[in-house]
Amino acid sequence: MGSRKREMAAKLKEQKSQIAIAKLNNCPTSPRKMRLVADIIRGKKVEDALNILKFSSKEAARRLDKLVLSAIANWQSKNEDSDVADAGLYIKEIRVDGGTMLKRLRPAPQGRAHRIRKRSNHVTVVLGQKNNEEVN
């Protein structure tokens, strides 16, 4: 391996240690309802986001709460020597994509049928670490 390639690989490894990713696939909530909650916590510090989710009355907030806690645990497994409170973690990216759709038929009057679409979604949370230079 050449020296430039080795330096680039070390740089990428350092960047990846600064972030943590958690995914939730096939969550049985419509993407629109999940995006309402996701938009509230996007860009917030992790402590603030957890407080917002804890006191939210929406069902999607409970699912996102567990997902953010999972992302924190993933960050801790990478950076065992660092403390979460001192790290300055924030929600760098949160993405809600549409998942699979269950299609059902509901009987309607006069021999007709209405289609029922039960939507699901995929949520991806990326936690970033604010460096001291970025905070100032």
Rank of each mutant, 00 (worst) to 15 (best):
S57D: 14
A85N: 14
V135I: 15
R112Q: 13
N132F: 08
Q129E: 15
A38L: 01
I52H: 07
R4D: 13
K44N: 06
C27R: 01
A87I: 11
A71Y: 02
L127P: 01
N121E: 07
R32D: 10
G2N: 13
P107T: 09
C27V: 07
R117Q: 13
R32F: 11
K33F: 11
A38H: 06
L127M: 07
G88K: 10
E134Q: 14
L105F: 12
L53F: 06
G88W: 09
L105H: 05
R62L: 10
I21L: 15
R106Y: 01
D97L: 03
K78C: 03
E93Q: 08
C27Q: 02
L69F: 00
L36C: 02
R117C: 07
I94Q: 04
R119C: 00
K5E: 12
K118L: 11
A60C: 12
V126W: 06
Q129C: 09
P109G: 14
K44A: 10
P107D: 06
A60I: 00
E93I: 01
T29I: 11
W75E: 07
I21Y: 05
K103T: 12
G43T: 04
K103C: 00
L36G: 03
P31N: 02
K92I: 01
P31F: 01
R115Q: 14
H122L: 02
D39V: 02
I21M: 08
A10Q: 14
G2K: 08
G128D: 04
E14Q: 15
K130Y: 08
K54D: 07
A60H: 00
H114T: 09
L24K: 03
A108E: 12
L105G: 03
R95W: 00
N136G: 10
G111R: 09
N26R: 00
S120T: 13
L36Y: 07
K130C: 00
V123K: 00
A38F: 03
C27Y: 09
K66D: 06
D86C: 02
E93K: 09
D65C: 06
R106V: 13
P28Y: 05
N79P: 12
V68I: 14
L12F: 11
A49I: 04
V126H: 05
K44Y: 05
A38N: 06
L127H: 03
D48L: 05
L102T: 12
I91L: 12
S17A: 15
A71F: 03
R119M: 02
